[in-house]
Design a protein around this nucleic acid. Structure first.
Length: 110
DNA sequence: TTGCTGACCGACG
DNA sequence: CCGTCGGCCAGCA
């Protein structure tokens, strides 16, 4: 797995491990990787994942507020919300309702 | 190689 | 409440 060699690869691993109907935050992933301050890299990795041939459920990754920050990067601002709602997650005004309930923390789960 | 930017987060004034 | 800055790592001109 060459992907796992880089910081990005570790992000991919975690994001792909996110179970159906769950969401996590950039900071949580960064914290799991051992670099809390590198939360920006997580988002950057997501951007790279869009070009990646590997399917990455980036729509399950949101910011600490539960807001769909990168929704615009999915091609259309509605795609990310539609995907989340399709998994049974309520999204309103670009933010996840009951975010705490759907929140999946890799540090605690893994 | 250097410098700027980026889907974040927390702290400071 | 709002604006600004630092920190983390990687990609690109």
């Amino acid at each position: 797995m060459k992907e796992n060699d880089s910081f990005f690869g570790q992000v991919y691993e975690v994001v792909k491990l996110i179970p159906y109907g769950r969401v996590t935050s950039y900071g949580a992933i960064a914290n799991y990787l051992g670099s809390k301050g590198s939360a920006r890299m997580v988002g950057w990795a997501m951007n790279a994942s869009l070009s990646s041939v590997v399917a990455i459920p980036a729509h399950r990754v949101v910011n600490r507020n539960g807001v769909l920050t990168g929704k615009h990067y999915f091609g259309s601002p509605d795609i990310m919300q539609q995907l989340l709602e399709n998994e049974g997650i309520n999204v309103e005004s670009d933010k996840i309702m009951n975010f705490e309930k759907y929140f999946w923390d890799p540090v605690k789960e893994l």
